[in-house]
Write a protein that binds this DNA or RNA. Structure first.
Lengths: 341, 341
DNA sequence: CCGCGCCATGTAATCGGTTTCATACCAGTC
DNA sequence: GACTGGTATGAAACCGATTACATGGCGCGG
């Protein structure tokens, strides 16, 4: 059994007794060839196990055959479900999902990604990228996902960050809290800003006013949640509840508070944001705002495909979030049977 | 400002006053052109913001410019760090990482992935795929990662599953346990088999013998861990420790045991496998076997690149694992200050 | 019976690079 | 001064598909 070269369209044409044009037509648009021709071409395709050369097709069609997702840290599980949604949506259109971790290679490597021949579209999940990277005329359509880059004009698909934060406040208010603090993310981050707006909206709706010394800031890491706990404990006048800008910080905060003998939610109720897998396994389980990540990924692809096809695209698509009440606000008894949910 | 077409190599050549061949040489092999020519070509490249068309280059070079990773479920965070390692290693060679979720598209879509023109290599992380998919002569080099497909001959990069399981047993033995049970994965899974071998090796080394009724089976899900707990509790003669084939099952098992009033590790010590992020946040934190996932990803790429370059490749590369002792075997006090680690 | 139009198909241009082969030039050697 | 060898470069083939354009045949209306 000799090592055979892959069949080319010429081989198929010869075997089927037609021209290469007819083979191509049969495969991409079967209806326009006659029944008989179609049969013999398909037979030849099967016999030769022909499969079109992707590079040749892409060259002629002036396309790349794939979409590139730029994420700040692939190892972060927050992204994996978004990527899964993207992969799912792209598979329907037979487009590849190419992923790149923006922390490797530096901008010298990144700049070449903004190239029509490399990707038919860009899904940007990292707000720290320089908008200038995508300014060239060769840059394919872009959709920003979750985070937003100031100064980069493109459609965005984001979670309802404001609505989610407002819902968290409303939930606490409903439980009787009036002394509500906030552990925010970095001030220049778009997520922080939207969640900030939602927090204030929620407070206003309840007739409450935020207090300056109850506004803590972190950097989305567990460690920063831990250090925020120390600042919280040092306050002369402690809040009865705190809304955190993500689950990691909430987790760090909770574990530090618990170690200091604080009861959650008895002394302080805690709410997070994102609903990462971890949240339902903490002790106590963490009340948080769920982002439908798979759906966000799918929707981002949907918008990108629209843009690639030249259709009108919503400048901003907002995906609703839902509050998931758990023990960190409700207490252990109320939910003991749902610990697994 | 009119919408300009991207510059082609011809344009660069004209501006620099040389042929396209010289431009191509200047960019891919600068040393073989004269100093003067190089300068004028590079100036023209900069002026036109020229960037080579990827499809054209790939077509001529008979390559794909990327490597495809096939994973069973992208949303599973276990894979994300492996993918991050792959992405990192591929970036050095300027190869794309294309990811595909094997649960979408079915095998009709999958079969076309095994094509040299689509990917320069395949990284297979899913052992449930049909080896026949990769039997064609057009199939690019393959490396199997973590899991192994029986009947698919190719290099493999796997964690030291046997060694890890043996280390878990040794750890329990050292703590004085002699009555050690096992919660295994699906019997036909390659991970289960290797961990099984390691478990027996560890037991043998300690002069212990496994008991048939202490061998439970699950499917790697938390739910199956939960149902295993019921079977464990129903045993007339309970073990003092149990080694689980992954962390998810260990997690489900622990939460069900705790709800039944069992103390961990007082009544039963529990060990897992994988060291997923969750493990260090459970209560009690879970003793488990850490797999260096990023390194596994990097190593898999290294082997694949060797295979692509036609070099000799180890048929099997085993990456060492390390046991991470935590509260579920040591008790809470012993490690209370390390809860964060 | 002519001519129009449609349908199925073939011919050949085209996509944009890389690389082989040929050539011109120059320095060094006898 | 002819010859050799090496270096820098250009002309053109080539990668393998898709598709614009051309063509031939056939049915049908006038």
């Amino acid at each position: 059994m000799r090592q055979e070269r892959a069949a080319r369209i010429k081989d198929v044409a010869r075997i089927a007794g037609v021209s290469t044009a007819t083979v191509s037509r049969t495969l991409s648009n079967p209806d326009i060839v006659s029944e008989e021709t179609r049969r013999s071409v398909l037979a030849a395709v099967k016999a030769t196990r022909y499969s079109a050369n992707v590079a040749a097709r892409n060259l002629r069609r002036q396309q790349a055959g794939g979409v590139l997702a730029l994420a700040p840290n692939l190892a972060n599980p927050f992204f994996s479900e978004i990527l899964a949604g993207m992969s799912e949506a792209l598979a329907e259109r037979r487009l590849n999902l190419i992923v790149a971790d923006t922390q490797f290679g530096g901008s010298s490597q990144l700049v070449q990604y903004a190239d029509r021949s490399r990707a038919d579209g860009l899904l940007i999940l990292d707000s720290r990228l320089d908008p200038a990277l995508f300014a060239g005329a060769q840059c394919p359509p872009i959709v920003q996902v979750c985070e937003e880059i100031e100064g980069l004009q493109s459609p965005r698909v984001v979670a309802d960050n404001a609505g989610g934060a407002a819902a968290a406040v409303a939930h606490l208010v409903e439980l009787g809290h009036t002394r509500i603090a906030r552990l925010a993310g970095p001030p220049d981050n778009s997520l922080t800003r939207w969640r900030d707006a939602g927090f204030r909206r929620g407070m206003d709706a309840a007739g409450l006013s935020g207090r300056g010394d109850w506004h803590l800031t972190g950097d989305f890491s567990m460690e920063s949640g831990r250090t925020a706990a120390a600042r919280l404990l040092a306050l002369p006048d402690r809040p009865s509840a705190i809304v955190c800008d993500n689950d990691e910080m909430a987790c760090g905060l909770m574990s530090a508070l618990i170690r200091s003998g604080i009861d959650i939610p008895g002394d302080i109720a805690v709410a997070g944001f994102d609903d990462i897998e971890l949240s339902r396994h903490l002790t106590p389980t963490l009340t948080t705002v769920h982002q439908p990540r798979r759906r966000i990924g799918r929707e981002a692809v949907r918008q990108l495909l629209l843009a690639i096809d030249g259709a009108d695209v919503a400048e901003r698509t907002v995906i609703p979030c839902t509050l998931v009440p758990r023990q960190s606000t409700l207490g252990r008894e109320a939910l003991s049977d749902q610990a697994a949910s």
